[in-house]
Design a protein around this nucleic acid. Structure first.
Lengths: 141, 141
DNA sequence: ATTAGTGCAAACTATTTGCAATAAG
DNA sequence: CTTATTGCAAATAGTTTGCACTAAT
């Protein structure tokens, strides 16, 4: 695996430690993967990309850990595709655009928008905005 | 079924006609249901609520038609729950809040926000914003 | 030592599909 | 009469779970 930012991996390990969550070999492999691959991946994607190098890896373990990482803020769960969860390895708050033609997901930086603490009396912890339409690339083609 | 707004049903029938889509008995039952029940329903919810009155109704037909209605703008598909699609029978553009404790979904009116036509060169057709947190009711309890 | 994680297979759930019978235009 | 829809059952796909074994603290 190339381009592993060791500092980013350490940061994520620290989060596990803080929560007294054991750092297993498999978890380290997954942390290295997400630290070196910015993008949008399903559990199956990650499993396919890693199973050649780690043939005994189980997809159940990928699911378990990605779900754990999401709860710790190490990855972001996107519910933008109709049939599966997508994990976003880029965790800074940002929005998403899904192309209705090619299905590609684009990161959208958030400008001038502040998350309200309350809406209609409900306490807001976080928010996700999904834009849908036709992407630049598909329009040009 | 009570509180069916006949005008609302007619409006939806008109949309089907405009698209040359046959108005079947089952479709009419579903259109009447969504016209008289403002809220957030899964396909299973709708199936359960209607099957007593229409025992031969099939859940596959509910799925087919809700999906059709969504593509026509007659209902709105929400991907706010982790494992299933929710149909919102309220179609005016609005956002949603999901309580992380009780799971209830609240409609949130959109104020002072205009949908951009373009973002990063991509053409935006529509957008969905989901807020997550603890609802008023759960905080008070 | 103790507690938690892994990998496998089986289970589960939401959704889709194939198809013969039927209804709509 | 022609085309599309219905209802049923079976299939599919994503995700979760039970469990024996193993690894981490």
């Amino acid at each position: 695996m190339q381009n592993v930012s060791e500092a980013q991996v350490q940061e994520k390990i620290k989060i596990l430690k803080e929560h007294h969550i054991p750092l297993t070999t498999t978890r380290l492999v997954l942390l290295r993967f997400i630290s070196s691959h910015r993008g949008h991946y399903s559990a199956e994607d990650i499993y396919q990309l890693l199973k050649e190098e780690y043939p005994s890896l189980s997809i159940a373990t990928v699911y378990n850990n990605m779900s754990l990482f999401a709860s710790l803020g190490i990855v972001q769960e996107l519910r933008i595709e109709r049939d599966k969860v997508i994990y976003d390895t880029y965790t800074k708050a940002h929005d998403h655009f899904l192309c209705l033609k090619c299905g590609k997901i684009y990161d959208i930086e958030i400008k001038n928008r502040k998350l309200p603490e309350q809406i209609d009396g409900h306490s807001v912890h976080y928010a996700h905005t999904y834009y849908f339409g036709i992407c630049k690339e598909c329009k040009e083609a």
